[in-house]
Design a protein around this nucleic acid. Structure first.
Lengths: 167, 167
DNA sequence: AAAATATGTCAATACTACTGACGTATTATT
DNA sequence: AATAATACGTCAGTAGTATTGACATATTTT
């Protein structure tokens, strides 16, 4: 399998941007994400929690009454993976489940007061980091950053993502 | 621990951007990264590899002759974690180690032809995704996206990251 | 009554990561 | 030449996240 020619050279791809510039952004996405999650990670270890717990706390915090199936679709993990994480959060008193009022099969998710507090403490360094980055990049660039990130998301997820982030 | 007041409200933080807009970007970073790594992940499973293998292939591909210690500093993982991943990549013929010419303690890392091929195949969907996002966002925004991501990186890492991405 | 939905749970497995310690080869310092 | 520092490898033990595939229950829809 010498050269399968899976990557056309820059001039055969209709793009004005060089591959070197694209590689820069690939690497910056790695570095940015690495540091972006490092602050919450540090807090989470004190609770014996990991990133999965953070994600649940975040999305339930932003969407009280979220259903299990919706959370699974957001996180793109399996029921089993979510199950253990959710059980720990409930046992430790950060998350509550309530029966759906119209559909009693549903287990709607809510944060307790302790859960809300923790979610805020986890969000705080990330909010600070992003606010700082947007100030460095200059005002008015929040929309550009948002549009760029949004375009990175799979097309078929766009509608769902839009519905989730716009509160 | 009712309200520890760890998050000042928007008006006490000197920022023109509302928290809601910042939360949008927090969530978009999650969704963008989730989908950004999904294509390579799918390829990697065929080799029984994971994301850590991808990262090694990527950074060695971009920096032939990289030292173990440099790679550890980039990935921010421990020697032990890197050790197993590297051993698998070497056993499977994707990575080679060579003694440093001036310092024989060093194990300089290089990709084999198979390793280069795999690195390219893994990079290809990510290059495409980013090129597409930058075209959607409009030309000239590559620099803005790059600056925004760069600002998200820890300040004390800026010099190192700059040196790595600018090839 | 049957089918579909929402959720929970089991066992087995694997990837990534950690801490802490110890060992070896090589180079730099005194 | 002896000592210290560096670069790397490796051991054991543990933990968090994730998977597949199967099976079970309660509830709602058809």
């Amino acid at each position: 399998m010498a050269n399968t020619n899976l990557m056309p050279s820059a001039d055969t791809r209709k793009s004005t941007i060089t591959d070197d510039k694209l590689f820069e952004i690939i690497e910056l996405l790695f570095f940015a994400y690495r540091d972006f999650v490092s602050d919450p990670d540090e807090i989470l270890t004190r609770y014996q929690f990991g990133r999965a717990h953070h994600r649940v706390l975040h999305f339930v915090s932003r969407n009280p009454g979220l259903r299990i199936s919706e959370l699974l679709d957001i996180l793109k993990i399996t029921k089993q993976s979510l199950g253990r994480v959710l059980r720990q959060l409930i046992e430790d008193g950060f998350v509550e489940q309530r029966e759906g009022s119209t559909d009693r099969r549903q287990r709607l998710l809510f944060l307790t007061d302790a859960g809300s507090d923790l979610a805020l403490r986890l969000a705080e360094p990330q909010l600070r980091r992003i606010a700082g980055a947007l100030e460095t990049a200059g005002p008015g660039n929040a929309a550009l950053a948002r549009d760029f990130l949004y375009s990175l998301v799979n097309d078929e997820e766009h509608a769902k993502v839009k519905a989730i982030i716009e509160k």
